[in-house]
Amino acid sequence: MVDFALSDEQELLRDTARSMFTRECPPSLVRDACYDVTPDGPATARSFHATHLSEWSALGDGPLVDLALFLEESGVVLAPGPLWVTASWALPLLRAAGHPDADAVAEGTLSATVAVADAAGVWEPGDHDECWFVPHLDQVDRVVFLRSGPSVLVVDADGLDSAPIEALDRTRPLWRVRVPAGTAVPVESGAVRDALDRATVGLAAELVGVGRWLQESTLAYVAEREQFGKPVGSFQGLQWKLVDASLHQERAAAAVAYAAMCVDADDDDRSSAVHVAKAAAGGAARHWARTGLQAHGGIGYTWEHDLHLRLRRAYGGDHLLGDADWHRDQLAGLLLD
């Protein structure tokens, strides 16, 4: 008994986001911000965020359903900058800590990231000296360190002892950062879990957007590209692969919207729904990345083609906050333990 119909406001939000991203975020901008090896990259990402995205940070205070609609659209174009981590993760943690910067983050005048994982890549609050896999560190104003307790330590992003981690997906730069001295403020563990659920579903929504781009681009390409005198999309061996990837994509999109509803309602099914959403979305984006690349043939394997940008994000996004198999194991835990 789930009603998936969007309200008029939700449709408007989605359409506004879609046209803004189409207008303002062409592939060349993503490449300038993330893949040109110039010192301007982070500046381009920052300025894109400041100009077009920061005003949307307040979505982080509202229903997750709305934020997820927005993040799906930003995933389609691979919008640069720290909106996902700022709105879906840092903001709820700052709110939970009653931190004075929370309002400025919601208003879009400050951006923030979250540092929690240890070197082993476990996203759980602890007392390690160094945090790993911290997204967008070079593009934000504040870092929220999530520590044992749980508690949070909020510091200025400038002047931290940090280093970039070279990784596949450069649209989401990852950093390691030494935890600075300071007093952490206690937060409720329920609030930490809530923030993590929002971040997980937000990331899954972005991955749905990534899968959507791959699906749309691939379907357009195979209808146009001809070999043996016919469009390659008419070959059944290829068609069935595209059908299977599309089914995966459809179930991911539905699972993400459902999880967002469960989080908003704090439904009993919430934990299960969040794990299902991330497992399905990570799996589907990877499925489409592989299938889309194969269906494009050689052209898709070139640096010039935008497909690899999504391939990188699909794998990068799946492995952030637990990959599909990790979430499946969590589901097994819910059912069996």
């Binding site: 179930r251 699972a255 729904a273 097994a332």
Partner: peptide, 14 residues
Amino acid sequence: IGELHEEVRSIRAL
């Protein structure tokens, strides 16, 4: 089990 649960629930959502 986790994988099958994911499939059942995501197909239901669909």
